[in-house]
């Protein structure tokens, strides 16, 4: 049982940190520009595919740097020539634009790399087991993922709280108009933030790609979870996004480990429920089976009862 707890925690934190790499960019973009970027997970996917392509020619490590940069530039271009054009039609149009973009990216990826998963390998230097606990091994690559995402998290923290750029961004988060009147080039800041956000997502893609299967459906399966994280954490709140990322990561990992169903709980209370009793499937479903629902349930509940999210300070 202890090993289950240890390894589930490790994997949960790992998954949560990866989520945070995406959620941080998404929440920054939303708070500054008011755009919920539907295509954010698509940039994550692009990162994974670019990383794969680069790793085939010059290896994994250059890809770790080049792919996020490339995707960041693409993101900045999308903001400059796409979003800015749509901006005058309002937020709904912006949302729809990114929705369409996600659609196009998925199609392009399928066209270029095919519909089946690509063979994105873990770099040879990390293809060993980091440690063995209760004779279960923890792969070094997962350790690397964990350290990378924590490193980036700390880097972001320093950037945002200790540098001038960070100050401007923080100011633009809450009072974009005033930042503009202070003489900062707000459109440029927007473009940079959008580009950097997309780059971060791509970085998450490059490091997650080899471990979590690089395939055209990876964006569509991650996208909705990402929204859950951002909304539950509180739109515009980085610390909220961090807490929510870890929360969702841990929930999803631990839920798989639990085989308890409502029927089991009721059995302890002396009530016998079977599949044949009214609403049978509901009673018999184990926590593991219900796991995919939990984040969305959380989302709906938070939006109704706590519209600011866990740590946000503005209404959705």
């Amino acid at each position: 049982m202890l090993e289950l707890v240890v390894f589930s925690s490790l994997n949960g934190v790992l998954y949560g940190m990866l989520l945070f790499l995406l959620a941080s960019g998404l929440t920054l973009i939303f708070s500054m520009m008011g755009v919920l970027n539907f295509a954010h997970a698509s940039f994550y996917m692009l990162g994974a595919y670019f990383g794969f392509q680069i790793s085939r020619y010059i290896g994994f490590w250059p890809g770790l740097v080049v792919a996020p940069l490339l995707v960041g530039v693409i993101g900045a271009l999308v903001e400059r020539y796409g979003l800015r054009t749509v901006h005058k039609h309002g937020h709904v149009a912006e949302l729809l634009f990114t929705f369409g973009l996600a659609f196009i990216v998925e199609e392009l990826v399928q066209m270029v790399w095919g519909k089946i998963p690509v063979d994105y390998r873990i770099p040879g230097a990390l293809n060993f087991s980091a440690f063995t606990l209760f004779d279960t091994t923890f792969p070094a690559y997962r350790m690397f993922m964990l350290l990378m995402s924590i490193g980036i998290f700390l880097g972001l923290l320093v950037l945002l709280t200790r540098t001038r750029v960070g100050l401007i961004i923080q100011a633009a988060l809450t009072h974009p108009n005033i930042v503009g009147t202070l003489g900062h080039n707000v459109p440029l800041v927007f473009m940079m933030v959008f580009g950097v956000g997309c780059g971060l997502a791509a970085l998450a893609g490059v490091i997650a790609g080899p471990a979590l299967v690089t395939q055209p459906a990876m964006a569509a399966s991650l996208g909705p979870i990402l929204f859950v994280v951002v909304v539950v954490g509180g739109l515009g709140s980085l610390s909220g996004a961090f807490v929510a990322s870890l929360l969702i990561g841990l929930i999803q990992t631990f839920a798989v480990a639990l085989n308890i169903s409502l029927a089991d709980v009721m059995a302890h209370l002396g009530v016998t429920l079977t599949r044949e009793s009214f609403g049978g499937d509901l009673w018999m479903a184990t926590v593991a089976q219900v796991a995919p629902i939990i984040p969305y349930l959380l989302l709906v509940l938070v939006l109704i009862f706590r519209p600011h999210g866990l740590m946000g300070n503005r209404d959705t």
């Binding site: 049982m1 090993e3 289950l4 390894f7 589930s8 994997n11 998954y15 279960t136 471990a211 979590l212 299967v213 395939q215 990876m218 399966s221 990992t253 798989v256 480990a257």
Partner: peptide, 15 residues
Amino acid sequence: LKITDFTPYITKIKA
């Protein structure tokens, strides 16, 4: 065909 990371399941089998 929805799971991309079977690690939690493997942990469980191991346990």
